[in-house]
Design a protein around this nucleic acid. Structure first.
Lengths: 303, 303
DNA sequence: TAGTGGTCTAGACCACGTG
DNA sequence: ACGTGGTCTAGACCACTAT
């Protein structure tokens, strides 16, 4: 008696959407033949009332055991993320409307909405009322300053100009390899550059990238490219930085650094070690920056 | 004809909730006598269907002019925030359930839910499934590390022990007064302390608090109190830190600092200037910390 | 068993942007 | 006029917690 549900509703409520994209809606024998089902008795349909749902517990071995079952909207979110990752919708493009996605996934618009809400909160997509939902991109003023926290003490923030000192392929140092989750000795691209604001050298950076993902990255490509480096990575190499983790310390300038930043030896500098991640929390960049904080500061909001 | 709506619905849809707390539900003459109302004709109630709403435009002077009207859930959010601020519900206590608040405000549970969702995202309240929604408090391990970003390079983070060098009342320096949004020369409480991890002095901090809010704060109170300083502020002085803004620089230890942190003169230190805010974005603390990053680092997540 | 937050649905209307 | 996201409602059921 407990399984008198409409098949469509059943599929929306119990189906694990992460398996097939166009799965037909038929009750799985697994859950149908399950003996001790949870107390999910669907009463009479109350005359065309709102949605009626069955249990979401997949395999009811015991009521206390809780296997890895996530809410529907989380599954939708994963599916959308997967499409973003695979490049089905490219940065800057519009993704299908909520109504269309709801139809595609056989769920209500509200469920799709909740999934997209979270993706929007994570800056993977950007919602624009009246227009649509768009894949986030680093080619926007909006997204620039998420990964650039060094602000001038006075005046508006403006982009620095880069001078590349070194761009080469090399074997990854052990520490870098560890952070990039690759084998020590695997090929990496190494970049060393100085950034200046209004002619004043301020940032000395060393960057390591996995050689497999960034094959073909040369000094020319970097010099030609206008705009943020992450924009280049996104457009030319199909790798989008999603989030990053930074460890900040204070350190004193040694002779080499002193010469490149035009400061005395021993000058106190901010040392920022960053590991950036793309989809699936995969690390794809290690960066060590030395910031001269004479006229700039690292801005951080605690909330 | 356009105003044939149930009064309850009318109140929920058009009333500006920010005025009275226990307003009765009767159509305000203001909106009722309004001549050119927007095209908000409510059709037949469609036999007990879902909600039917009127316009939310308060004074329909012209359709193009857009006065400051916020969505219902934002108004609810403001009302709840106001109750938090006034101390109607104290830190650690449970706030009324969603159903009760929905009844009190004459809106649907979903609307209250959305308001609380945002308050939860801003860490003003904490939701606990099956138990209720609780006013956030600094007396929790969970909330501790939001305002403590200095982590040991190895091992688990653990609380430091404080030694208070100075606790006194003084006239606020111009810069501090500016940041606290008080008059230069107004009374402030000044605190100077050194914090040590495992006996190693690591943090030298100077803190300025508005004298009016923290009257009676003495070295004894600070020494007696176990737990985070913000917990003391919250419990003893009724001031809860909601968010903070930090500017981070590198600086060299001078002689005074060198002695207090047991490091050579000129050692590179992190300089962290923090302004903390309570409700209504009111600044209530200025703090300048010097961090020794020999065995610690400032951890920051960019997302 | 009762109460709370968490998920899901279906449908209405609004605000915005574009043709 | 139409399509998009944004708001709001009403109601159902689930998961969790406490009594």
């Amino acid at each position: 008696m407990a399984f008198v549900v409409k098949s469509k509703v059943m599929s929306a409520a119990t189906q694990n959407l992460l398996n097939a994209s166009g799965a037909t809606s038929s009750a799985t024998s697994e859950s149908a033949t399950n003996g001790a089902s949870p107390a999910s008795v669907n009463g009479a349909p109350t005359s065309g009332g709102p949605g009626v749902h069955g249990s979401r517990q997949g395999a009811g071995t015991a009521s206390s055991s809780s296997p890895t079952f996530s809410p529907l909207y989380q599954q939708i979110k994963s599916l959308i993320t997967r499409s973003l990752q695979s490049g089905e919708w490219k940065p800057g493009e519009m993704i299908p409307s909520e109504v269309e996605l709801a139809g595609r996934f056989k769920v209500s618009q509200g469920t799709v909405r909740k999934a997209i809400d979270e993706l929007s909160a994570e800056n993977l997509v950007v919602r624009r009322q009246g227009k649509g939902t768009f894949v986030a991109t680093h080619h926007e003023a909006r997204a620039q300053f998420r990964f650039l926290r060094l602000m001038p003490d006075a005046g508006e923030p403006h982009p620095a100009d880069s001078r590349f000192l070194e761009v080469k392929r090399m074997r990854g140092p052990a520490e870098v390899a560890r952070l990039l989750d690759i084998k020590s000795g695997d090929s990496v691209i190494f970049i060393k550059r100085v950034q200046a604001f209004d002619g004043a050298p301020t940032i000395l950076e060393e960057i390591w990238l996995p050689g497999t993902l960034f094959k073909g990255l040369t000094a020319e490509r970097l010099n030609e490219y206008k705009g943020p480096m992450y924009g280049l990575f996104e457009t030319e190499f199909g790798t989008r930085m999603i989030r990053a983790s930074e460890k900040i310390r204070a350190s004193a300038a040694d002779e080499a650094v002193s010469a490149l930043l035009s400061v005395p030896v021993g000058t106190a500098l901010l040392s920022v070690e960053r590991v950036s991640f793309t989809y699936d929390d995969k690390p794809v960049e290690v960066r060590r920056g030395l910031y001269l904080t004479e006229h700039h500061h690292y801005q951080n909001e605690l909330s």
